[in-house]
C-alpha cells in the first residue's frame, strides 16, 4: 500500500492504495467517479479517457503510483454544478449522444483539444477523437458539436 497525493477535479486528495491498481479502478472504486468507463482495458476504445495534466490519457493504462503529484480531471470535473460546459451543451444540442457510454470520454477529448487548439480544423477534431470509439453515432454529430463549441470559445 502507498499513500498517494494528487489533484482530482481541482481538489487535492490523499488516498491509500495498492500502487499497481489502474487509475481507472482508483477513480471508479475509491472515488465513485463512475463517469469514467471501461470498454476494452487495452487502450483501444478510449472510454476511460481522463485528463492528466491537461492531456487526454487512457486511465486503464496508468498505474495509481504514476499519478502521484499529477492533476487529474474526470467528466465529473467538467460541468460547474448543474451548469454544463459549452462542449456538453453542444453535444446535447447536436444530438451527439446516443447510448452515452463513450460520451464522457469524448467530451474530455474535445475539452483537451479546445484548451490547446481553440480553432481546430475538422481533421484536427477527428485526430483528437480517433482514439474514442463510438458505435452509435458515426461521429458526425460529435464532430459538429465540437466544431460549434470551438466557434463559441473563440468568439468569447
Amino acid at each position: 500500500m502507498i499513500k498517494l497525493k494528487f489533484i482530482l477535479n481541482g481538489k487535492e486528495v490523499i488516498v491509500e492504495t495498492e500502487p499497481s491498481i489502474r487509475l481507472l479502478d482508483l477513480l471508479r472504486d475509491r472515488f465513485s467517479l463512475t463517469g469514467t468507463k471501461e470498454g476494452c482495458g487495452v487502450g483501444e476504445c478510449g472510454a476511460c479517457t481522463v485528463l492528466m495534466n491537461g492531456k487526454a490519457v487512457n486511465s486503464c493504462l496508468i498505474f495509481a503510483a504514476q499519478v502521484e503529484g499529477n492533476e487529474i480531471v474526470t467528466i465529473e470535473g467538467i460541468a460547474n454544478g448543474n451548469e454544463l460546459h459549452p462542449i456538453q451543451k453542444n453535444f446535447l444540442k447536436y444530438g451527439a449522444v446516443q447510448c452515452g457510454f463513450c460520451s464522457p470520454a469524448m467530451v474530455l477529448s474535445a475539452f483537451a483539444l479546445l484548451e490547446e487548439n481553440p480553432n481546430p480544423t475538422e481533421e484536427e477534431i477527428k485526430d483528437a477523437i480517433a482514439g474514442n470509439l463510438c458505435r452509435c453515432t458515426g461521429y458526425k454529430q460529435i464532430i459538429e458539436a465540437i466544431a460549434e463549441s470551438a466557434k463559441e470559445v473563440t468568439s468569447h
Partner: peptide
C-alpha cells in the same frame, strides 16, 4: 502512432 491518448503517454 496509436491515438492521441496513446501518443500523450
Amino acid at each position: 502512432i496509436g491515438s492521441l491518448q496513446i501518443r500523450n503517454r
